[in-house]
């Protein structure tokens, strides 16, 4: 092959590179794939919350029935089950409103609004539940102080001191993950607008 033809082909390839250099990529399919990966994370957390709530609703009554022997306040037991059931259904409604499986086909502006609303209402739900939980723990402590000896009360207080931070960390770290993923999704969607 003549050298000048090869050189011509190289020059044509250089022209192609020059032309492409000026272009930008917008890849909807790739963006959707990364968004779907993030949604899987949110979905996993959703199922975890619902399963834990479900188990509490199933085993909670049995535990309360057992604790009845120790004069455990029934009203407190019902409150715990009621709050758990409320949490279960509220979380289910919130996550379903988000409609995780179809958002990638939706209007971007609607999707952004859905995620922002989800975060807002989820925070309100949690704030309400933390309040109820604080009342419940105080009530349980007061009940325990009536039935346990001084030593038993100390052991109980130590257990609470260990379990409460663990519980708080478990809930808040999970919520943080969901919210930060929502923020990433909102950011990614806002780039498309």
């Amino acid at each position: 092959m003549e050298n000048n033809e090869l050189e011509e082909m190289k020059a044509q390839l250089a022209l192609l590179n020059e032309k492409l250099e000026k272009e930008h990529i917008v890849n909807e399919k790739l963006t959707k794939e990364t968004l779907r990966n993030k949604m899987r994370l949110v979905n996993t957390n959703k199922y975890f919350i619902l399963v834990v709530d479900g188990l509490c609703m199933v085993f909670g009554p049995a535990l309360i029935w057992y604790l009845r022997m120790y004069n455990f306040p029934i009203w407190l037991g019902f409150l715990a089950i009621a709050v758990t059931a409320f949490d279960f259904f509220a979380q289910l409604v919130l996550f379903n409103k988000l409609n995780l499986n179809s958002f990638t086909n939706e209007n971007v502006v609607n999707s952004i609004k859905k995620f922002k609303d989800f975060k807002k209402y989820h925070k309100i739900l949690l704030t309400f539940e933390w309040g109820i939980t604080a009342i419940a723990f105080i009530s349980i402590f007061l009940w325990a102080s009536q039935i346990l000896s001084k030593q038993g009360l100390i052991i109980y207080a130590i257990c609470l001191a260990l379990l409460i931070p663990l519980g708080i960390w478990s809930v808040t770290s999970r919520q943080k993950k969901i919210y930060s993923t929502c923020d990433e999704i909102i950011e990614q969607l806002e780039e498309k607008v």
Binding site: A11, Q12, K19, E23, I25, V26, N27, K29
Partner: peptide
């Protein structure tokens, strides 16, 4: 639906540079 682009059509554009590229 229209997903992508490099907003360029090297198959149908008719400017001089593209003609050279089409030859390649």
């Amino acid at each position: 639906t229209v997903p992508l682009s490099m907003d360029i059509n090297l198959f149908t554009d008719t400017d001089d540079d593209t003609r050279q590229i089409q030859q390649l």
